[in-house]
């Protein structure tokens, strides 16, 4: 088993290295950090710009291979280089990962947990009112683009705030700047800022997971082992929870792991609309700022997330389902 894990890890590492390298080469050859200095006043001289760019290893006059080598040696030491403004990419990365992690964890866990519950119950009540309502809701959400959803939520929140006459929902940034309200006040402020973006993430998750779980559950509902469990004397509820749902959750849990990893850097719309400085918004911001090293770092992060997620979902599958456990 260990040997197979090791072999897989190696191929994953190769994958990440390749993805990051290609991303760097693409960014370095298409983005032009020099443009950032054109608007400056007073206009710096070309020599000044060159010097600055050389410092940052972003000068397009240096051959690409040379720039790549310097960047790669840094990365090998764990240093993703500097941003266009000269700050450390590593620090920025660290800060933004936590922002995204907070958003994505709450959003996906909430969304998928509710989705699983609703989906499983909808399967039990197939074609009844609950099933029909949840189906319509799920399809409505699936059909709504994330942008539309995020903005609609803002509109609803504003209407609500106006109606109540208080700022219950806040939707700009992660916290109120310069707020001094003690520990609980600050915590509440952060939570209030989180509600809308989390909902914007959770709702599509809920939609996808409820459909997925409903189908999985329908597959096992009629199975013989659920009938055996009831023939043993388990009540309908116990048989459904302990036997049907436990079995039907296996694919969902692994799918969740995978989604979670991929979501880490895929929340661009939500973060941009709610003004959160996480990984998702960095994808767009770094390209916007001609920030070659940030683009490479984001790509590397996405590749690592993807690989870790797919690895974890495989391992989890084997752990949850004894039928495919490796002997």
């Amino acid at each position: 088993m260990g040997r197979f894990l090791a072999r897989r890890m190696v191929s994953y590492a190769v994958l990440v290295v390749l993805a990051t390298t290609f991303a760097y080469l693409l960014a370095a050859s298409t983005l032009s950090p020099r443009v950032n200095y054109e608007e400056h006043s007073p206009q710096p001289t070309e020599e000044q710009v060159d010097r600055r760019l050389d410092e940052l290893n972003l000068n397009d006059k240096t051959p690409l291979a040379e720039r790549w080598f310097e960047w790669a040696t840094g990365v090998a030491r764990g240093d993703f280089g500097a941003t266009v403004t000269g700050t450390s990419v590593n620090e920025e990365l660290e800060r933004r990962v936590w922002v995204s992690l907070r958003l994505v964890t709450v959003g996906t866990v909430l969304g998928s947990a509710i989705g699983v519950g609703v989906g499983a119950y909808a399967a039990v009540r197939q074609y009844r009112a609950f099933d029909r309502v949840s189906t319509v809701a799920a399809f409505l959400l699936l059909a709504t683009p994330p942008v539309v959803l995020a903005i609609s939520l803002q509109v609803l929140a504003t209407t609500f705030n106006d109606a109540v006459g208080a700022r219950v929902f806040v939707f700009n940034g992660e916290s109120t700047l310069g707020l001094d309200a003690g520990f609980w006040g600050t915590l509440w402020d952060r939570v209030a800022h989180m509600i809308l973006p989390t909902l914007a993430l959770a709702l599509p998750q809920f939609a996808a997971f409820s459909r997925y779980q409903r189908n999985m559950m329908l597959d096992v509902l009629g199975s013989d082992f659920v009938r055996t469990a009831r023939a043993k004397g388990l009540s309908r509820r116990d048989a459904l929870l302990k036997h049907a749902l436990r079995t039907a959750m296996i694919p969902t849990v692994t799918y969740f792991t995978f989604t979670f990893g991929v979501m880490m850097a895929a929340t661009t719309f939500t973060e941009k609309i709610y003004n959160w400085n996480g990984m998702g918004s960095w994808v767009v911001d770094s390209i916007d700022n001609q920030d070659v090293h940030a683009v490479a770092a984001v790509s590397c992060f996405m590749a690592v997330c993807f690989v870790v997620a797919s690895f974890l979902s495989d391992v989890l599958y084997a752990w949850l389902d004894p039928r495919i456990r490796v002997g």
């Binding site: 199975s223 013989d224 469990a229 388990l234 036997h243």
Partner: peptide, 25 residues
């Protein structure tokens, strides 16, 4: 509830297809 109390204790059943009759997990 009342039926579950009898099922498996005073009346029980063996089904046809043993391959799918047991919970796999």
């Amino acid at each position: 509830e009342a039926m579950s109390a009898r099922r498996g204790s005073s009346i029980s059943m063996v089904f046809q297809d043993p391959l799918s009759a047991l919970t796999p997990v």
